[in-house]
Design a protein around this nucleic acid. Structure first.
Length: 550
RNA sequence: GGCCCCAUCGUCUAGCCCGGUCUAGGACAUCUCCCUUUCACGGAGAGGACAGGGGUUCAAAUCCCCUUGGGGUCACCA
């Protein structure tokens, strides 16, 4: 039988890095064995699903280079003989198998409301006993059930568990036996007519001929339920491999809520009581501030972060894209969380992963996601790529995330900036984020006043400002305004007037034109800025620093 | 709390299944020095782990037990 794996996200948001890793391993396992990789959208929760989210998944997966053989059709991928691939479109299929279970006496209707069940759960908790469904509905007479159904009383369907222990065989975790007492008659169809996750998964995995289920370890205990369902339905049993969770450096589970956490912290630190105008509407703001469980939607959260001047932690694949990480690096790094090829190889690509991935080499322990190491990998990849490629990718990134910057710099300016930036960039975003001074109007530039800037500009004579005054005519006389042309003028000046210490002249220049102490190499910076801007900024800088120091 | 799983440098991990080749290897981070017009990059070097306790054995990171610690799960969410 042909190997088949599936990635089955619920479309309740963007693709999370943990999900991305699951997808990656599923893909690698199937594709490395001439198998099929299926994408299935588990949208059985009507309250939490959205079409936009499933498109987000497709985009993110596509960006990572993980393409599905079967699944929703999107830009030339997908389709397949086992559709539809949205669970919400498979209701008739589920109902058919539900009826089989009912007919065989393996399942039964139950009429307790959510509130009733909650009360029973609370009572058990108060008594210090674990809660299990009490099978009250099993005592109902057939005609009672029929009349309730006919009367339209909301009903769920539960699986009648056989009452024996279940031993799970797992490719990474080995064998584990779940005692019968731990598994109660769980719900397989909700009152709204939709199947629960457990039921839909089991049916779809069978019908889509999935042979290997690779999923996160949080599903491990669920496996017992799925096995019981397979037995009741007469289905085959796929092989299971449960992948360790990816978590934050502090050990907490990585989640979308981390963004809200970062925002709340920043808001508290700034003692903000009113929302920044036009970012969050006052009603939503109040609800959000008042309840830690309320989350801001992605766009609003991002706008608030921008307004507060903070960077949100990257959680979703799209966040890493926005931050300027390369897809091939993210994939490489993700694969290293929970798996390794077994030698000292750390840098590899999709193709390598495809041919070497083996679930038996998956680690059993949860991994803490180390963004610092990821950044280091990204830096290596960026500094190591051919410059044409860097230029191309930087431009694509800029068009998506910094269109105004791109416009103001112009094609030639961007090319020059890219040239000066590649070897000092850790992400595609660095070139834009760190260099905003290039695109502010000359007369709008302000200067950071700190120990460092004041020392460089106003230190002992000749001070930075003195050098700048002297440099003004020198630069003014430069006829070939290029990096080398400028260097040819400034170097001799430093030799003659700064004891050959180029820094004595370079640093004041840097501060004057950039407003701060960090920029690309100074001659490149001046060349990109142009002669007029350079001179104008120097004049204004001298004025700004000397005016306040007098 | 019940149940299930897990446990090697700060972090990701190699080694564990098939005990000796492990004075435990690599990577990121850290520290020192070098390079340097800033920030980075780069180069050289250093420190850093088998959770604890019992066994088994000539020999244990590797096998067994206990303790401790961590994670997952106990929904009409997936």
């Amino acid at each position: 039988m042909r190997i088949a794996t599936r990635f089955a996200p619920s479309p309740s948001g963007h693709l999370h890095v943990g999900g991305a890793r699951t997808a990656l391993f599923c893909w690698a396992f199937a594709k490395g064995r001439d198998g099929t990789f299926i994408l299935r959208i588990e949208d059985t929760d009507q309250k939490r699903s959205s079409d936009a989210a499933s498109i987000g998944f497709a985009k993110d997966l596509h960006w990572l280079g993980i393409l599905w053989d079967e699944g929703p059709q999107w830009q030339g991928v997908g389709g397949g003989p086992h559709g539809p691939y949205f669970q919400s479109e498979r209701l008739a299929i589920y109902n058919h198998h539900l009826q089989r279970l009912l007919d065989a006496g393996h399942a039964y209707y139950a009429f307790e409301t959510g509130e009733e069940l909650d009360a029973k759960r609370k009572a058990s908790a108060a008594a210090g006993k674990p809660y299990r469904y009490d099978r009250a509905a099993l005592a109902l007479q057939p005609d009672e059930v029929a009349s309730k159904l006919a009367a339209g009383v909301p009903a769920v369907i539960r699986l009648k568990c056989p009452g024996h222990d279940v031993t799970i065989k797992d490719e990474v975790l080995g064998e584990a036996t779940i005692p019968a007492t731990e598994i109660d008659d769980f719900v397989i169809r909700k009152a709204d007519g939709f199947p629960t996750y457990h039921f839909a998964v089991v049916v779809d995995d069978e019908l889509m001929q999935v042979t290997h289920v690779l999923r996160a370890q949080e599903h491990f205990t669920n496996t017992a339920k799925h096995m019981l369902l397979q037995d009741a339905l007469g289905f085959r049993r796929p092989a299971y491999a449960h992948l360790p969770i990816i978590c934050n450096p502090d050990g907490s589970k990585m989640s979308k809520r981390d963004k809200d956490k970062a925002l709340r912290k920043a808001v508290a630190e700034r003692k903000l009581t009113e929302p920044p105008t036009g970012i969050v509407d006052p009603g939503a703001w109040g609800a959000w501030l008042g309840d830690k469980n309320v989350q801001l939607d992605l766009e609003t959260g991002q706008r608030l972060a921008d307004a507060l001047g903070i960077t949100l932690p990257e959680i979703n694949v799209d966040d890493f894209k926005r931050s300027g990480y390369l897809p091939e690096v993210l994939i490489n790094f993700l694969a290293l969380n929970g798996w390794s090829p077994g030698n000292d190889i750390e840098k590899f690509d999709l193709e390598f992963l495809r041919t070497s991935f083996d679930p038996r080499r998956v680690v059993k322990t949860p991994a803490k996601f180390d963004r610092v190491k990821l950044l280091s990998f990204n830096c290596d990849a960026i500094t190591g790529m051919p410059h044409e490629e860097f230029l191309r990718r930087a431009i694509a990134h800029g068009r998506s995330y910094h269109p105004a910057f791109m416009d103001r710099m112009g094609e030639q300016g961007i090319a020059m900036l890219a040239k000066a930036s590649q070897e000092r960039s850790k992400t595609l975003d660095d070139m834009f984020r760190g260099n905003r001074f290039f695109v502010v109007a000359d007369d709008a530039l302000t200067w950071e006043r700190s120990k460092n800037t004041d020392k460089a500009m106003l230190g002992e004579a000749p001070s930075g400002c003195d050098h700048l005054r002297a440099l003004l005519p020198v630069l003014g006389g430069v006829t070939e305004w290029t990096s080398t042309g400028i260097e040819a003028a400034v170097k001799p000046y430093a030799e003659a007037h700064a004891a050959g210490q180029l820094g004595k002249a370079a640093q004041p220049l840097r501060i004057a034109v950039s407003g701060g102490t960090v920029s690309p190499p100074i001659f490149d910076t001046l060349a990109i800025l142009g002669k007029a801007s350079t001179l104008r900024r120097i004049e204004r800088a001298i004025a700004a620093f000397t005016a306040t120091s007098a």
